[in-house]
Design a protein around this nucleic acid. Structure first.
Lengths: 213, 213
DNA sequence: ACTTATACCGTACGATCGTTCGTTCCGTAT
DNA sequence: ATACGGAACGAACGATCGTACGGTATAAGT
């Protein structure tokens, strides 16, 4: 009665708004902890309207995951895209990655990490989605590492897949442990470890130090 | 009527059995994914009996966490306890850790890692419990690293807390990514990365290779 | 101005959640 | 022989879960 209906043109952005809000919730509560009811309340709409946009809960979860990945890509890959392929781009990725973990993009920490843990041992479409995302990111890192190896910027004999795996492990493990224990130096430690994994010198920049954005 | 009641002397072991079964479930579904009903079904008892042992669900979750930590301590710390403090003990810890991640102790992967992600952004008693556990383990690792540094077995200037943090990040991040993507080399990669973090040579032992126990 | 399409809502559903209650029965001590 | 502590039970609670259905009000099309 008093609530203005939204025009059809707003629908796309309305769905997008729903997803963005869901990303924020799920980054804290987990993708599995998302509930239609709470999210609808948060958005000021009814459960039926919310679920109507997606069909069912699983479709919503997949949309939320995709949106979170888009955030990550924008925050970490995009800034490094312009750098020269190889070690320089890896260095840029590390910087952007650390900055991303430190800013407020995901209130509850890296979304993909959370989703990885939620679905690493539970089969289903969401497991497959998350696994595909992680595999894709690992391939990106591996390709850059391979290029760095070609250029002689990594020790001969180093496995590019190892490098990619190590960077990913450090980022996800480090961000979780840091937030859990409240260690303010966690990101600095993580950045240092990632640079060590790449054979880069200790502290050439303090760009990864910012804490909130 | 037909179900034999358990004697009072069995209660302690009965509660222990409940907890052990809960650990298995929670290692897959997460500590938050534990439900009284499903667990009671799995144990072949009523919901009221199960919850009666603990008081409420949160108390049960805390008991489950404690039991999981005991398993971890038994599997990772105990075998390394006998080693000489310092780099030798760290090396033994890494071997036991990798072996532990590879055996079937936790069907759904490292329990503490799962719990860390679940509660890293959610305050409450469980968050505090998990954080305390992780902090304690980091202090153990740090103490060994400090000893190794004294002994000249780590590069001068290396921060023992950094070493501890890095080992922990690699173990938790690596085990999750490995199980998620199904990379069979994940544990080998993780072990190599942990040894690199300690400045240990590449492949002096294949003890971390076993997959099931 | 009238029809059609479509957001959105309220309501209701069956299931399951954690929890509480009163009762039954066993083992042990008196 | 009998009273008592406690372990386990089934039933039921209010709440919340995901989902389905029918109605209503608005925007777009003619």
């Amino acid at each position: 009665m008093s609530v203005p209906r939204r025009s059809a043109a707003d629908v796309a952005t309305s769905r997008a708004r729903s997803v963005e809000a869901a990303v924020d919730v799920a980054s804290v509560e987990g993708l599995e902890g998302l509930t239609i009811g709470r999210l609808a309340d948060r958005l000021g709409m009814s459960k039926s309207s919310l679920i109507g946009r997606f069909g069912d809960k699983e479709a919503m979860q997949r949309a939320v995951l995709a949106a979170a990945v888009a955030r990550f890509t924008e925050a970490v890959w995009r800034p490094a895209e312009g750098a020269r392929p190889g070690i320089a781009r890896l260095e840029a990725i590390v910087d952007a990655w650390i900055a991303h973990l430190g800013d407020g993009t995901f209130p509850g920490g890296c979304f993909v990490t959370t989703a990885s843990v939620e679905y690493d041992a539970r089969p289903g479409p969401l497991h497959d989605d998350v696994a595909a995302v992680v595999r894709r990111w690992l391939r990106v890192l591996e390709a850059e590492a391979a290029r760095a190896l070609e250029d002689g910027d990594l020790p001969p004999g180093r496995d590019p897949a190892d490098v990619a795996f190590e960077l990913h492990s450090l980022a996800s493990g480090g961000s979780v442990a840091g937030r859990l224990t409240g260690d303010p130096a966690a990101l600095t430690r993580t950045r240092a470890a990632m640079r060590r994994a790449l054979g880069l010198p200790g502290r050439p920049s303090a760009a990864g130090q910012r804490v909130a954005g």
